[in-house]
């Protein structure tokens, strides 16, 4: 009875989607609702909570910090990750796999342990906590994404293309710039945006390594502890738009066709 089986699966799928998406929908919904407590009945539509958020100087500070961290981490992960992936691609496979195991350790570790280790490390070195410690901490766990993705691409890379360029007189840097980079550019952008997305919404490691400052996730955490002000929903909705927007741009740029 294929009909009934299909119906069952469809029902399950719809249920799963509702479960996954309804909290997100509610966050967006209540960010525009008048009700002070973010409960039903919602009352009329308003932009009041966005106004409250934009009037909060902490929001602008957190936004600025998040922007600095995310962009720097993205840039550094891209450069470091690509350089590492290119080197690994030229290393013999057994050694390369062992090295990848070590490099990807940070994403295997529980974030809490990594955060603790980093915070302990900085304090034992006597480094003051701040954005200067958040950025390298993020790179520790974002670069594996870039390395893995770019290395996977290099593994299937047609090396005859590199040989051809050499044969036609190009030096290593020219080959990278004119041949390798244009070919792997979509992958590179995708990997970088992935690293940025991971960095943007990281809470635990940021919380342990930022000291007194704040980024958007740690600001949300702070607001939650004070009161359930619907301007949190406004902030949540903005972060959602930023993340989904970034992903869409990434998919568009990498010409991803599903």
């Amino acid at each position: 009875m294929p009909g009934r089986g299909n119906l069952l699966w469809t029902g399950f799928g719809v249920l799963a989607l509702v479960f996954l998406l309804s909290p997100l929908a509610l966050v967006v919904f209540f960010s525009f609702a008048e009700n002070q407590n973010a409960t039903f009945p919602a009352g009329g539509a308003t932009l009041h909570w966005y106004g409250v958020l934009f009037d909060d100087p902490d929001f602008w500070k957190a936004l600025g910090n998040s922007a600095i961290v995310t962009l720097t981490v993205g840039l550094v992960s891209m450069v470091v990750g690509t350089a590492a992936a290119m080197t690994l691609a030229r290393t013999r496979p057994a050694l390369a796999n062992a090295l990848i195991g070590v490099i990807t350790l940070p994403i295997m570790l529980p974030p809490l342990v990594l955060a603790l280790a980093l915070a302990t490390g900085y304090s034992s070195l006597g480094l003051p906590l701040g954005l200067g410690t958040v950025i390298p901490s993020h790179v520790v766990f974002t670069q594996p994404f870039v390395i893995l993705v770019v290395h996977a691409q290099m593994a299937s890379f047609n090396m005859a293309v590199v040989d051809s360029a050499r044969d036609l007189g190009a030096g290593p840097w020219t080959i990278f710039r004119t041949v390798i980079l244009p070919i792997i550019r979509p992958t590179l952008i995708g990997a970088t945006l992935m690293a940025m997305a991971v960095s943007l919404d990281d809470f635990i490691i940021t919380y342990f390594t930022i000291g007194g400052g704040m980024t958007l996730p740690t600001m949300i955490w702070g607001m939650l502890r004070k009161a359930l002000d619907p301007s949190i929903n406004a902030l949540g909705a903005l972060v959602l738009v930023a993340t989904v927007g970034t992903s869409l741009i990434a998919l568009r740029l990498t010409r991803y066709r599903g």
Partner: peptide, 20 residues
């Protein structure tokens, strides 16, 4: 000397054309 410095040019088995 490497291939970039030699007065030889190669047609590779898989051609190695620049796809972009």
């Amino acid at each position: 000397l490497g291939p970039e410095k030699r007065n030889t040019n190669m047609v590779f088995q898989g051609y190695g054309l620049f796809p972009h």
